[in-house]
Structure formats: structure tokens, C-alpha cells
Design a protein around this nucleic acid. Structure first.
Lengths: 139, 139
DNA sequence: ACAATTGCTTCGAGTAACTCGAAGGTCAAT
DNA sequence: ATTGACCTTCGAGTTACTCGAAGCAATTGT
């Protein structure tokens, strides 16, 4: 089964621009061209792209991803380094999730605070709304 | 209590460059200067900065954050719009956490797969290591 | 007392990872 | 034969930093 760049973009939830960018930067080394020079993507390319999207979304730089993909093409000798890279990415992602959960609770506070303000929509005190926020955030 | 830009950077876990960037872009409107033109941060500035860091980390653009902070200075009339903004950010962040958890499980697969390869470190089949990864990811 | 160091300042350039528009080629359909 | 849909490359633009250079002020070392 083969796909156009637009089909791939659709399937992966990224832009055609990004796909071309990744291809230009050597991260999709097996993508073929048809008679009109158009990119032709196979399922195996989608799997590479899936890894790229996963690693980008979890904060790995394009350069590091390229290095990882190069390692994957260099055979089993590189498994330990790839293992270390994924271990690091695992830790980074866990940390990122924790951070986001922390930030989410800050945002939840804001939402609740505004909801309250709107419910009993008196000006509700002489304090500037700014200070009210601060107290809401700080305790 | 007042702080230098380096102290603030340390406290907030961001760079002095970022802090100057936010200040230049009008997101820290209350920061004062001392006799030598150096920025002087008060606790109230740290609270603003805390909100900025939270919103940036959860994917809000600098421009939107600026708008949000402008609203906060415009008084209680803007509470409904601020509420909507925080609601949206709440949803975005929940989604982002979910996506990260999905990506994390993909990475976990990789880690486990490499760990196995290293444990019984025979070349373990005639398949290129690449295809092995694919099967590991796909089932 | 004077030089060196420290720590801030601004300004302008550089970077990562896209993002987009213009100009152009190929092909199917009207 | 031309229109429209898709694709291409190329180069410029964008966001959010990131950094280095040059400069000023206060403190520290000799």
C-alpha cells in the first residue's frame, strides 16, 4: 500500500510541511519518488514517521532523532546506545507528564476561581481582581 | 523581598534570557529598575512569572499570554473571557497529557525490546533489527 | 588608588522547527 | 485547449528563545 504526502499528513496528524522537512533532513531515507518526482510513502515509511512523531512530541530534537535513526540502520551493535537514548526519553517524558499535571492543577485553580467570581457576580470586594488571583494561587 | 534577574531565573527554573524576553514583550509590567537600571523583581512579579511559565509550558503562545495578562489588568469585566481562556487551556493540557502517555507507552515498548535484545545478546534472528522494531511497535 | 572582576544592561544576530507563498511541472477532465 | 487538482523546489517569514559583544557600575584585590 502506498500513499501521497497529503494522505500521510492526514493519517499522522501533522502537516505536509513537516513531512517534507523531515525528509529533507534525512529522517525518511526510504521514501521513493514516482515518475513525476512526487514522494511515494509505503507503510514502512509510516512506521518510521510514527517513531519520529513520537520522539518529537516527547521533546527530542530533530538532530538527535536523526542520530537515533542512523543508529537503527547501523545494525545490532548500536542497540546499547539506542537503549540508552530510549531510557533517557522515557525519563524525560515521565518528568514532562508530571510537570504538566502540576501546571494543570494551577490552571484548574484559575478555572474554579473564575467560575466562582461569575456565579456570585458581585464585584465581590474592593480588592483589585489581580490580588484576588494571587491569593487564589498562593494558598 | 526583592530579587535580581539571576535569582529569579534560579527560582523559576528558566533562563535570564527568557525573563528579559518576557519583560521586553510587556508580560512583566510591574518590574522596577534600580539606580543602575537593573531589573528589580518583587514577589508579586514572581507570581506573574509563575503564571507565564505555567501557560507557556502548557502551550499557550506568548501573544495569547500577553492578552490574558492585559485582561487581568482590565478588571472584573474581563473575567468571562479569562474563564474561557483557562477552560481552553485546561482542555488542551488534558489532551497533551493523554498524548504524552500514549507516546510514553511507545517508548516503553522500545526500552523493553532493547533490554531483551541485550539480555540474550545473540544476533537473535536473521531479520534486520529494523523489522524487529516494527513488529515490537505494531502488535 | 587603581585595575580587575562581577553582574547587570542593550542590541543585534543566530537557531530550531516549522510554516508559507510563489513559480512551475504533470495529469485528468471538461 | 484550458482548467483544476496535486505535487515539486526554493527562499523567505515566524515563534520563542539563545547567545555574544560592548558597555556601565559597584565591589574586590594588590
Amino acid at each position: 500500500m502506498s500513499y501521497t504526502i497529503h494522505e500521510v499528513a492526514e493519517k499522522m496528524g501533522i502537516s505536509t510541511y513537516s513531512i517534507r522537512y523531515y525528509h529533507e533532513h534525512g529522517m525518511l531515507p526510504f521514501v521513493q519518488r514516482d515518475a513525476n518526482n512526487n514522494r511515494v510513502f509505503e507503510d514502512s515509511d509510516l512506521e518510521w514517521l510514527n517513531i519520529i512523531v513520537c520522539l518529537r512530541a516527547t521533546g527530542m530534537s530533530v538532530e538527535r532523532i536523526k542520530h537515533y535513526l542512523d543508529l537503527a540502520q547501523d545494525g545490532d551493535d548500536t542497540v546499547p546506545e539506542r537503549y540508552e537514548m530510549m531510557k533517557e526519553q522515557q525519563a524525560r517524558t515521565l518528568q514532562e507528564i508530571q510537570d504538566l499535571q502540576q501546571h494543570l492543577s494551577t490552571i484548574n485553580f484559575k478555572v474554579d476561581h473564575y467560575a466562582e467570581l461569575m456565579e456570585n457576580h458581585e464585584p465581590d470586594s474592593f480588592l483589585p481582581s489581580d490580588l484576588q488571583q494571587k491569593t487564589a494561587v498562593n494558598q
